[in-house]
């Protein structure tokens, strides 16, 4: 067979979404929801690495990249947590149990869960950014003894916007994980921290020399967070971020997600800061 033909066929195959049935819908906050999906066709197992994403296709509407937010050890259910912001995600928010969506993936790079073994781990999330980090949290907690301190710093808009609240409370009740949540504004019912997530970094109890940091949130939040971590002495090589750009193919073919010399869909979305520091925060990219 002509090798070019088979090459294009292979790409075409990767572009075909597989039907998945919505098994459960969880309303997380006023604008964020979780879909638990089960495959219609395959053996029902979906293997992925923490930090990877899928392209989710709403028939007749469009396709969007969404990170997998479930537990990598529980492969029977595919979990995504999405915030309804625009055309596709708002339509997705209206789907119900039993509806079918198209899934292709998993794509992209993963959080350095294995490389972080032996280190303190600082996970810093902003808003919906907690969802792409949740698989890493599950994985790290399931192998708790292999890590030093585990610290989660989470910032969001108001107490009503706290994602996975019940799970965070459960995690907090463990004595071997430190969780600090902060919100941008609150009324008196909230007794927790108020202020941006970067203000939690100076006093968080980790050893900067032996720390792996994983950050996900709006780009500006990640920029200031990196600044604080570097100030504390965490090396660029040990800081990891998950980047976002609009995507089309998701497999490094169309160039839509180009970020300097990198393609976010295949070289990312998870990058070490050392890898992208010359691009990070540049306005024209």
């Amino acid at each position: 067979m002509d090798p070019m033909v088979s090459h294009y066929e292979a790409i075409e195959l990767q572009m075909v979404p597989h039907p998945y049935k919505i098994h459960r819908v969880i309303k997380e906050t006023h604008d964020t929801f979780t879909l638990e999906l089960k495959s219609n066709t395959s053996n029902g197992k979906f293997a992925f690495r923490a930090g990877q994403f899928n392209m989710l296709y709403i028939f007749g509407v469009g396709e969007v990249p969404i990170s997998i937010s479930g537990d990598p050890n529980k492969m029977e259910t595919l979990v995504h947590t999405t915030r309804a912001v625009g055309t596709v995600t708002k339509k997705m928010a209206k789907l119900k149990k039993g509806d079918v969506i198209g899934v292709r993936g998993p794509y992209g790079t993963n959080w350095p869960v294995k490389a972080a073994i032996g280190n303190d781990v600082v996970i810093i999330a902003g808003g919906i950014g907690l969802a792409p980090l949740r698989p890493a949290i599950y994985q790290i907690i399931s192998q708790r003894k292999h890590y030093g301190k585990i610290i989660l710093l989470y910032g969001t808009r108001t107490p009503a916007d706290i994602l996975f609240r019940h799970e965070l409370e459960k995690l907090k009740s463990r004595l071997d994980v430190d969780i600090y949540v902060t919100v941008d504004r609150a009324t008196r019912e909230w007794n927790g921290n108020v202020g941006v997530v970067t203000t939690l970094i100076p006093r968080a109890p980790f050893d900067p020399i032996n720390t792996t940091a994983m950050i996900c949130g709006p780009e500006i939040m990640m920029r200031y967070t990196i600044g604080e971590l570097v100030k504390r002495g965490v090396s660029h090589e040990n800081i990891f971020v998950s980047m976002e750009r609009n995507m089309k193919c998701g497999i490094g073919f169309c160039g839509h997600c180009q970020y300097g010399t990198e393609f976010i869909c295949k070289d990312g979305p998870v990058f070490s800061y050392a890898q992208i520091k010359d691009l990070f925060g540049k306005r024209e990219l």
Partner: peptide, 11 residues
Amino acid sequence: YAMRLQLLDIY
């Protein structure tokens, strides 16, 4: 610095 970030209402 923190207040400016808060003002941006990034979430």
